[in-house]
Design a protein around this nucleic acid. Structure first.
Lengths: 189, 189
DNA sequence: CGACACATGTAACACGTTACATGATTTG
DNA sequence: CAAATCATGTAACGTGTTACATGTGTCG
């Protein structure tokens, strides 16, 4: 529902056309979460069908303009004033993967964890650099970008700490041997 | 693709039937990420169509058993040995919401942040309690559950820290006034 | 003129959710 | 016997992705 509501939020500011909605969305979430233009149009169709937006004729340049209906104004007001539900968090593919790998035979858990650490760390460094670049000249659109980047950085940092914890837990339950920096030959399974 | 691969992972252990696959999945991700039984059957249909699983006749109790094909074994091997891609992280509704709210007029940012803090904190406490219960007697299935719970707890803690940062950033850019614990009357917008 | 950005769509497909239908077996 | 659990499906719908089709305007 994020896209649906994002479109309503942007229309709350003023009436806009499809292509413009994508531009405004991507100006904020940018390279991180691109938005397919086809989805904008089909979402606008559904929003009109549901009575949340109204399709105006043209705007002088011939653009197909959409504006918020009263029902749409209610909807977006509710979205903004109500917290994003954390009762049913979206599935986390990585958590599912480790959860399965840890309880099924024939998986190399330390390798999986190490592999993931590499990927997550690489992305974290890339994001940190991006954040540094963006925070240089904080224009209006960059405020939005910073918020998104901060979010991703915090999530990735948490992911890395979680990977450490998983490794520690598995050592503790004896599922894998502790990996010491300069370990000599240890007893293998 | 998480469900698709989870089913393959469970089949790697041994041949199973639909209902059993759901049970095994939910034994690990449990109350957090329930799995609709209908989706199991339709996913199995697609997996069979794609040649990743083979539908065996019955198993003595009359169950519709599926087993991994060689192609399926390759597929799940690849999934387990390759890190979950962090290049295109899934959209975060909350990050999008704050990003939009911070750059559109007519939004009460402090209220949104405070509202979210309440919801996230409540969920965090619920999860912490759950984690305490589960970690009491670490049976095999509980290892999987713990991994999932740890993941959620870490993500929520990161979310709360991120909310603090957002507030601080907005104070810094002058978008909102600093909220002090025992603040007297301050200049309002 | 050719490439690229602007602009609006449609179609096919994958994935996910909810609800419905149907029947066997188990348990109070 | 009634209710719950086990077990296998189908149908409708919403959301999201990718690719395709089409046409205008601008810039080198």
């Amino acid at each position: 529902m994020a896209i649906r509501h994002s479109i309503l939020a942007l229309l709350q500011d003023k009436a806009r056309y499809g292509y413009e909605l994508r531009s405004e969305f991507e100006a904020r979430t940018g390279a991180v979460w691109p938005l397919n233009i086809g989805q904008v149009y089909s979402t606008l169709d559904r929003l009109e069908r549901d009575g949340l937006v109204t399709r105006e004729g043209a705007d002088g340049e011939g653009h197909v303009i959409y504006s918020l209906s009263p029902a749409g104004r209610d909807e977006i007001g509710g979205w903004l004033s109500t917290a994003v539900g954390r009762e049913a968090p979206p599935r986390n593919e990585l958590a599912i993967k480790l959860s399965l790998a840890a309880t099924l035979p024939g998986t190399d858990l330390p390798a999986i964890i190490q592999e993931q650490r590499g990927a997550s760390l690489a992305k974290l460094q890339e994001l940190s650099q991006l954040r540094k670049d963006v925070s240089g000249a904080p224009r209006t659109a960059d405020t939005a970008r910073l918020i998104v980047l901060d979010s991703l950085v915090f999530q990735l940092e948490a992911e890395l700490r979680w990977l450490d914890l998983c490794e520690a837990r598995l050592v503790h339950t004896g599922q894998i041997a502790a990996v010491l920096p300069d370990a000599g030959p240890a007893a293998a399974g």
